[in-house]
Amino acid sequence: MSDHAADHSTDDHAVDIDKHVKVYITVFVTLMVLTVVTVAISRLHLSVPVAVTIALFVALVKGSLVAGYFMHLVSEKRLIYAVLALTAAFFVVLLALPVLTHEDGFWIPQAAEPAAAHPEAEHK
């Protein structure tokens, strides 16, 4: 029966589970180090854009480690990747939301003002 097959594959896993555990410990240590790093960098009081970039980059690395190794995303099935890719696409749309509320100036910051001023001059 298929139950039996599932149990069998578990036994296969048990062989390399020790290897997994070593990876988990390595990831754990890395995460700790990165936590200290990100706190230390914040003490430097860098300018906001630089600080945001660095902090989010570190968070992204940490997040990828958790997702990749603790959540086993490095060796997941295609279906899960597909679901997450779709989610990621819409997540990006969602994060673009603050940009969308800006007026034209956000897109063409230099050209916007003279272009807006020009028709007024013509009306005169």
């Binding site: 749309v93 969308l100 800006h102 007026e103 034209d104 100036g105 956000f106 897109w107």
Partner: peptide, 18 residues
């Protein structure tokens, strides 16, 4: 359908590019 929502909001003063 995920990238059309703001057509409900043309009157909120959004920029012409958007």
């Amino acid at each position: 359908s995920f990238i059309v929502w703001a057509h409900h909001m043309f009157m909120t003063g959004m920029g012409t590019a958007m």
